[in-house]
Design a protein around this nucleic acid. Structure first.
Lengths: 242, 242
DNA sequence: CAGTGGTCTAGACCACGCG
DNA sequence: GCGTGGTCTAGACCACTGT
């Protein structure tokens, strides 16, 4: 392998995994590491980017780089079931910001409403043990009376399903679309991740019993500490293909 | 915004989206672009990395950088249904390599067999219109007689479900786990993507009617041209929670 | 203010593709 | 061989954090 930054990343990863560099301890300054590995600063930083994407390093501008053991992954259960409550048992927190907005093109197409339709937007940031776990924006037509939703909020931001149920809305169909991509600027800030950390982007739409799209959720999960699992059907039908 | 490479990326993206730089045409050499934007080469290359991750630029070492319109996404249908055949209608191709291997730790835990168990590994690369669309490795216990599988191969590498069915194996449960991460070296080569392109990593295990794990699939989809959709249940049960 | 990471440059040198 | 992208360096300068 002729790529030096991968060499550096491999060695640092090994040192963190084996505890030579203890978890949660600060790494030596980048300049020192560069000298130690006999590489330039950009090369060393490239290596740290790799490790950051893998969850072994967390960077803080002005404070330092910190070794981490990759996080236990938050499980998002696709399908109709609410998100797993998580096994970590750590403290969870949630921040919700509500505002009225007008449907812009992307969201309006998902909600199947004209552009400019008044919507209520919930920006929901869920944390566990001080680490951001999910970042979601929820859009509902403003005509739906949803004041109760905020009061009925659960400790999980992505678990809007329960909120709606508790608000008395019956939905019958959900569609989910999952992609992997780089985070945008807002997601980087909310989830405290860098541009080269992959995220799982989940679009989920709920359709109520009358066929109306009740809400659309744009959920972003950091790739280094989240996974999607599928609720497995109990059995396979015999009429498999479409 | 004080970050110059994002400025450059924004401008180039606009030029490609609006057709000022036609799709499939070669971009000016990096040195020329650097001069045009009055930035250094590393800065310009950072901008190109961003666009590559978004699917607007494809890079070829020694040949040049090419403008692209982001690909129509290949849809992977999670759940039990075979993968969508794709709407592109373009030519599809598939390469399969088979070899016998011994179960290493990661795969052995997924298959629930001891380490060292003889396995058959299928490495499957699916292409459409000359672009790699999916890269999968399939592991089955060697004791299963699967010679027919290769003959019965479908044009979609990730569609092993049909292969198994046609081989007479009845499976009853599937589990799927989806994560987003950076590609490893092998995936970068097979899918022709760079280190900073996100991938959807899907682990799928099939369990047959006797409870045995029949196979495990490690499927990698390039984030810039694939998506996962959920087969929506026709209706929601009332006994929702677990 | 001192120490840290973040961005950027100019240029050297290497690796690849193609004629 | 030539033109292309890929990697790397040394150092300047900026921005953030905590004292």
């Amino acid at each position: 392998m002729t790529v030096r930054y991968l060499h550096v990343a491999d060695d640092l990863r090994r040192r963190i995994m084996t505890g030579v560099i203890p978890a949660d301890s600060m790494l030596p300054p980048e300049q020192e590491l560069a000298i130690e590995y006999q590489v330039g600063k950009p090369t060393l930083r490239r290596a740290l980017e790799v490790l950051q994407g893998e969850g072994f390093v967390e960077k803080f501008h002005g404070r330092g780089n910190f070794a981490r053991q990759p996080f236990q992954r938050t499980t998002y259960l696709a399908g109709w079931r609410p998100a797993d409550r998580g096994d970590g048992g750590g403290a969870t927190g949630i921040e919700i910001a509500v505002q009225e907005v007008q449907a812009r093109r992307y969201v309006s197409s998902l909600l199947k409403v004209p552009e400019g339709t008044p919507l209520v937007e919930y920006a929901i940031l869920a944390e566990q043990d001080g680490m951001p776990r999910s970042w979601a924006r929820v859009y509902l037509p403003a005509e739906l009376s949803v004041t109760r939703l905020v009061e009925a909020r659960s400790p999980w931001g992505d678990d809007i399903t329960e909120l709606l149920t508790s608000a008395g809305i019956q939905f019958v169909v959900t569609t989910e679309r999952i992609t992997a991509r780089a985070p945008d600027a807002e997601e980087m800030r909310a989830l405290r991740i860098a541009a080269w950390t992959s995220v799982l982007a989940i679009e989920r739409s709920l359709i109520d019993i009358s066929g109306r799209v009740v809400e659309t959720i744009l959920l972003t999960l950091p790739g280094d500490r989240a996974e999607v699992r599928l609720a497995a059907p109990a059995a396979f039908g015999t009429e498999a293909g479409r």
